[in-house]
Computed example of a mutant assay.
Amino acid sequence: MSDTTTRALSLLNLLQTHRHWPGSELAGRLGVTERTVRRDVERLRELGYRIESSPGSAGGYRLEAGSAVPPLLLTDEEAVAMAIGLRVAASQRLVSGPETTITALAKLEQVLPAPLRRRVAALAETVQPTGLNAGAAVSSEVLGELALASRDHERVRFTYTAASGEVTRRRVEPHALAPAERHWYLLCWDLDKDDWRTFRVDRLEDVEHTRVLFSPKALTPEEIEEFILIARSWVRQAVEADAVMDLPLEQMRDIFGQWGQGASAENESQTRWPVGGGDFRETMYGLTWIPAGVEYSIDLVEPARSELRETVARMLRALDAPAPPRRMTS
Rank of each mutant, 00 (worst) to 15 (best):
T5R: 09
T6F: 01
A8Y: 00
A8S: 14
L9E: 00
L11R: 00
L12V: 09
L12T: 04
L15F: 07
Q16N: 09
Q16M: 09
T17F: 03
R19I: 04
H20Y: 06
W21Y: 05
G28D: 12
L30D: 06
V32R: 02
E34A: 14
E34Y: 03
E34L: 05
R35E: 04
D40A: 01
R45T: 06
G48V: 02
G56M: 06
G56V: 05
Y61D: 07
R62T: 15
R62C: 15
E64Q: 12
G66Y: 04
P71N: 03
E77L: 13
A79N: 03
V80Q: 01
V80S: 02
G85Y: 10
L94W: 13
S96D: 13
E99M: 05
T103H: 07
A104F: 00
A106W: 05
K107C: 06
L108W: 12
Q110F: 10
R118T: 14
R119N: 09
V120E: 01
L123E: 15
V127Y: 07
Q128W: 03
Q128P: 00
P129G: 08
G131C: 07
G131I: 06
L132R: 15
N133K: 01
N133A: 05
G135E: 07
V138L: 11
A149E: 08
E154N: 06
R155F: 01
V156H: 05
S164D: 15
G165D: 01
V172P: 04
H175S: 11
L177S: 04
W184S: 06
Y185E: 06
Y185W: 13
L186G: 07
L187S: 06
C188W: 10
W189H: 14
L191E: 14
K193M: 04
R197F: 07
R203K: 10
R203N: 11
L204G: 02
L204T: 10
D206A: 15
V212Y: 06
P216V: 07
T220G: 10
E223V: 08
I224W: 02
E226M: 10
E226T: 11
A231N: 08
R232M: 14
V235C: 09
R236M: 07
R236W: 06
D242K: 10
M245K: 02
E250A: 11
E250L: 09
M252F: 15
M252I: 01
M252C: 12
W259A: 11
Q261G: 05
A263P: 01
N267T: 09
S269L: 06
S269V: 10
Q270S: 09
R272N: 08
R272I: 10
P274Y: 03
P274K: 12
G276Y: 02
G278P: 04
D279V: 13
R281S: 15
E282Q: 15
T283M: 14
T283S: 14
M284I: 09
M284K: 07
G286R: 12
L287G: 13
W289K: 13
I290E: 00
E295A: 11
Y296I: 10
S297W: 04
S297L: 01
L300M: 10
V301E: 14
V301L: 09
E302D: 14
A304M: 02
R305W: 03
M315P: 00
L319P: 00
D320E: 14
A323N: 06
P325V: 08
P325L: 10
R326N: 04
R326T: 12
R327A: 11
T329K: 13
